[in-house]
């Protein structure tokens, strides 16, 4: 049985609109309402221990879906199961099996040290004092929290706080971890450290991870599978390394020519930009063999430097969003 299973899930919000022509009392007594479809008939399933990126542009319905899976919001229609439980009717039982982290919101007490934050979560999740102590020791070691565990949370750097937030979310040993933009605002070093720790935790404990992030490098580094939604609808559910080939059939090529030399016409090489001696081009690998094009290029130029690269994950995601808008 799948660890997370969603079938035809739909969430519609009703919002009131202010009509200037109706005046204050008209709007007060007879407000106009508009239905907003946040999640529109999506279905997917995730196996135990999988790491899945759940991405989409702003307002796509990612957080709404995660909040429905965590039992915070109730779906308008459709069904879902998380760890064999229905989040809508068994929210409290499910809460003990699920960990959530919303990167833009802190869940720790700002004026108390992190050690007290663990105690608070222990009380919220009904853990015994000995369990809290044992798990706290494990997590502090894994997330390298010892150096600042006695400082008030408000004095921690963003990177330290985010590591602490993830650690307290794991205190009750959840089977599923919902991460909503866990690396937001972090520098590259802090991002990498957090990703590595999450990968290690997933490997050791077999926790299922559902991640939303606007950072393509999070998706690439953490999740072998990616689900993309846009306007509330599921548009792609594929292996992350397949996303490039689905949307791009090109390779980027950049090379340096000797000073004063203009690039010759090479079949299959599409020049995109030229800046002094540096030339940037693309090769459509569906039509041309990469090796043939590069051999032809090297035959007619004394190339000083040559880089061949796939489109970045950023470009891939941009292309996916553009295609599905």
């Amino acid at each position: 049985m799948s660890h997370i299973a969603i079938k035809n899930l739909r969430k519609v919000f009703t919002t009131t609109l202010r009509n200037p022509e109706k005046g204050f009392w008209g709007n007060f007594f007879r407000p106009e309402k508009k239905a907003i479809i946040a999640v529109d008939d999506i279905s997917f399933s995730i196996e135990k221990g999988e790491r899945v990126a759940f991405i989409g542009p702003n307002g796509a319905g990612k957080s709404t879906t995660i909040k429905m899976l965590a039992g915070i919001l109730q779906p308008t229609s459709g069904s879902m199961m998380v760890c064999g439980l229905n989040p809508t009717t068994e929210r409290r039982t499910l809460a003990a099996k699920v960990g959530t982290l919303f990167g833009q919101r802190s869940q720790l007490l700002p004026n108390l040290p992190l050690l007290d934050g663990f105690e608070l979560f222990g009380a919220l999740y009904g853990l015994t004092a000995s369990t809290v102590l044992r798990r706290r020791k494990e997590l502090m070691g894994r997330f390298s929290l010892e150096d600042f565990a006695t400082q008030p949370v408000r004095k921690l750097s963003l990177g330290q706080r985010m590591r602490a937030e993830v650690a307290v979310s794991l205190l009750h040993k959840p089977e599923v971890l919902f991460l909503d933009e866990p690396t937001i605002g972090l520098d590259v070093v802090a991002k990498r450290a957090l990703r590595e720790t999450l990968l290690e935790y997933n490997r050791d404990e077999g926790v299922t991870i559902l991640l939303t992030s606007h950072d393509p490098s999070d998706v690439e580094a953490l999740c072998p599978r990616t689900i993309v939604i846009n306007h509330g609808r599921l548009v792609i559910d594929a292996r992350t390394d397949e996303l490039r080939s689905r949307y791009f059939t090109t390779k980027h090529v950049a090379f340096d020519l000797p000073v004063g030399e203009a690039p010759h016409v090479v079949e299959g090489l599409q020049i995109v930009e030229r800046d002094g001696t540096r030339v940037e081009a693309t090769i459509d690998i569906e039509k041309y063999e990469l090796r043939d094009v590069l051999t032809a290029l090297l035959a007619c130029h004394k190339v000083n430097d040559l880089d061949v690269a796939d489109p970045s994950m950023n470009e891939v995601i941009e292309a996916i969003y553009a295609h599905t808008t």
Binding site: L109, N111, L112, D116, E119, L120, G122, A123, L124, G126
Partner: peptide, 25 residues
């Protein structure tokens, strides 16, 4: 969930927030 266990959990929350208050004396 036993009532006493739940009361102890609420008690812990009270103690922690009280502690936080004192930290902002």
């Amino acid at each position: 969930m036993p009532t006493r266990h739940r009361a102890r959990r609420y008690g812990k929350i009270i103690v922690l927030t009280l502690r936080e208050q004192y930290s902002r004396a």
